[in-house]
Design a protein around this nucleic acid. Structure first.
Lengths: 152, 152
DNA sequence: GCACACTCGACCTAAAAAGTCGAGAAAGTC
DNA sequence: GACTTTCTCGACTTTTTAGGTCGAGTGTGC
């Protein structure tokens, strides 16, 4: 139950693009240094984001990357899915396709519930929220509990 | 953002032990066949559960495994943590220890919120719930949304 | 035309996940 | 007390994924 470096990098790069606004394209190298991500690896990630239609790019002098849509219309879930595929799988299978034997039948519903709860965060937060630092109230409420900050 | 086969196996085996009740110990082989888990791999998992104090075991004829605590007092989170360590890490680091640069600062709070939401499911559901098939209301509500069953 | 910066496939390494093997040690049975 | 059963546990193998590198292209702007 972990977030890969790739997904983390992708979101951070996307946030940086969101912060840059509509003006000039941002060079890969600047994204790499400002978020401390290995450049070549980042370019692969940006390419995937481009293939998924989240990002656009132009080569050459004055080239670079920019968001294909307004930052307020791109959620964290969009970015994570672009590089990792469907969120929250069990053994690389979507939970709703799994058949559990006998006593474990109800376990499928647990994984479904977990996935729903993950989505409810990632699909609510947009890149614009991240740039402004103001998260949706439902998400802020979750981080408000001191318990949420305890390692476990 | 995926659940490993190991964690899935561990929970299923634990549910099977919960279903067996307080009577005789259950043999590894029976757990393996009833939940269709490779025996040798399962034995490693059971050993980890034993080391974490969730399960007890006895060797020899009439030997087998059983739960160390009543099934109603063991949550899915307990089992998952026993085999996978802390739930929901980013790049194998707990989210609260990560420092994000500049524009990505708020991202940490997002991961914290995700973790909190995962916990809120896994810490609510006990092995007894799974055996009976009756999940806590808060969890049932999550699975009630048709949207929760859509692959994405 | 030339420098810049993305494009993209091939490749690489390390670690983790998943699973197998086999010797040994405790528990019960006869 | 020999024997069988079943857990114990380290060592090993295999497969997959994560994470990262290289280098040859190709479009763009000046």
């Amino acid at each position: 139950m972990r977030v890969s470096a790739k997904a983390d990098y992708a979101v951070r790069a996307a946030v940086e693009l969101a912060a840059a606004g509509e003006g000039e394209p941002v060079k890969g190298e600047r994204l790499a240094t400002s978020q401390d991500i290995p450049l070549q690896f980042l370019e692969h990630i940006l390419l995937e984001l481009k293939h998924q239609g989240l990002v656009r790019a132009r080569r050459g002098a004055k080239g670079g990357y920019w968001l294909a849509r307004p930052a307020a219309e791109v959620t964290v879930a969009d970015v994570v899915r672009a590089v990792e595929g469907p969120i929250a799988n069990v053994q690389s299978m979507p939970p709703e396709t799994i058949e559990y034997a006998g006593n474990a039948e109800a376990l499928r519903d647990v994984w479904i519930a977990v996935r729903a709860n993950i989505r409810s965060v990632l699909e609510e937060v947009t890149l614009a929220d991240l740039v402004s630092g103001e998260l949706p109230r439902s998400v802020e409420q979750l981080t408000a509990e001191p318990d949420a900050w305890a390692a476990r």
